[in-house]
Design a protein around this nucleic acid. Structure first.
Length: 315
RNA sequence: CGCGGGGUAGAGCAGUUGGCAGCUCGCCAGGCCCAUAACCUGGAGGUCGUCGGUUCGAAUCCGACCCCCGCAA
């Protein structure tokens, strides 16, 4: 029926990929032949079987869903569909050459950084952690390497000083979705020439480990602030208080610092603010969550836990 | 059956040898003050998650269920 539409197989897993899938599905220039996503797995509290965000979207859109343990097993089936593009957005597995070679025009990836900077899975946390002023989206052709293929389109955005991984994730996922359709069409019609990534400025940022969320109060307030924003909401930043895990979800560097340096991790109550001494400077805690409890704004937390105003965190 | 913490006033938390239900904040009223988010006085507001059991008597002990959350994935 739609023989003049560009035929796409979509591959992705988490929420980050949803805007891309949904915008392609809503775009009459494309026909989505099916969606590949990670298998349903036990996840979360209680180990209930969870379906990926993309599977949910695909089902809502009435699209065919494949969930292979190994994507190679789909090779023959995909080949028969003779897709023009394989579009990959955060699928979660490396794709073998055998699969990448199936689509007639190539496999296209949406990546959340300005490549070649921040190749790898933690491309959203990386710029915040490094205090960068900008980041962006790269749409590229995939090759056998890790995020190393030729660039089709790149769009930069300026980071907000209070940017968190959550807010940047949201911005980039929509930016990628917005660029994707036109980029595919332009490349399809020969208007874009892929450019090889520069050899200068390559960096890698592989997926975050849980331990990075531990706040080391001997670091400077500025660094800790960047960590808290980069790791929000996952894996989160935490310290300990009265032998319980205390997550810090929101904080800022205390600007007026006529305070004398104290032992890192010491808390003070100043002007109804909860302030923690760091290796250099002070951090003003705005929002936190004690193990077992909800996330609370600091003034509410203090109503029930006034003792935290004179404590030693992380010990 | 992955491990664990928790559901008490609008919010956040105390409260197990079972015996009149408390604290901080907020809210209402009054007072102080040039004034105030500050301070003082008084007040309203609770089926103690739900259902059942034990007991003279249950927030508290027992059982089932619902909901929230941390870890781990």
């Amino acid at each position: 029926m739609s023989s003049n539409k560009i035929k796409i197989i979509f591959s992705g897993t988490p929420e980050f990929a949803q805007p891309s899938l949904e915008s392609l599905a809503a775009d009459s220039r494309f026909e989505i032949l099916g969606v590949i996503t990670q298998p349903d797995r036990p996840a979360g509290r209680g180990q209930k079987i969870a379906t990926s965000a993309i599977k949910q979207s695909a089902q809502k859109l009435g699209l065919t869903v494949w969930q292979p343990q190994k994507i190679k097993s789909l090779a023959a089936e995909l080949k028969k569909l003779s897709p023009d593009f394989l579009v990959v957005v955060a699928y979660g597995q490396l794709l073998p050459r055998e699969i990448l070679e199936i689509p007639k025009y190539g496999a296209v990836n949406v990546h959340g950084s300005l490549l070649p900077k921040y190749r790898g899975a933690a491309c959203i946390a990386a710029p915040i952690l490094n205090g960068d002023k900008n980041s962006g989206i790269t749409i590229m052709l995939m090759n056998a390497g890790l995020d190393s293929g030729p660039i089709l389109k790149q769009t930069e955005i300026i980071l907000d000083p209070k940017e968190t991984a959550a807010s940047l994730h949201d911005k980039l996922s929509h930016l990628g979705a917005k660029d994707l359709g036109n980029t595919l069409v332009s490349f399809y019609s020969g208007k874009i020439k892929p450019k090889d990534q520069p050899l200068e400025g390559i960096s890698y940022f592989s997926s975050l480990k849980k331990e990075v969320g531990l706040l080391e109060w001997t670091k400077s307030a500025e660094i800790l602030d960047q960590e808290i924003r980069a790791y929000y909401p996952w894996p989160g930043s935490f310290t300990t208080w009265q032998r319980r895990r205390l997550k810090i979800t929101k904080a800022e560097v205390l600007k007026e610092t006529e305070l004398k340096n104290k032992l890192p991790g010491t808390t003070l109550l100043i002007d109804k603010k909860l302030v923690v001494a760091c290796g250099q400077g002070f951090l003003n805690i705005l929002e936190l969550q004690l193990e077992g409890g909800r996330v609370l704004k600091i003034e509410v937390f203090l109503d029930g836990h006034p003792q935290i105003a004179h404590a030693q965190l992380g010990s």
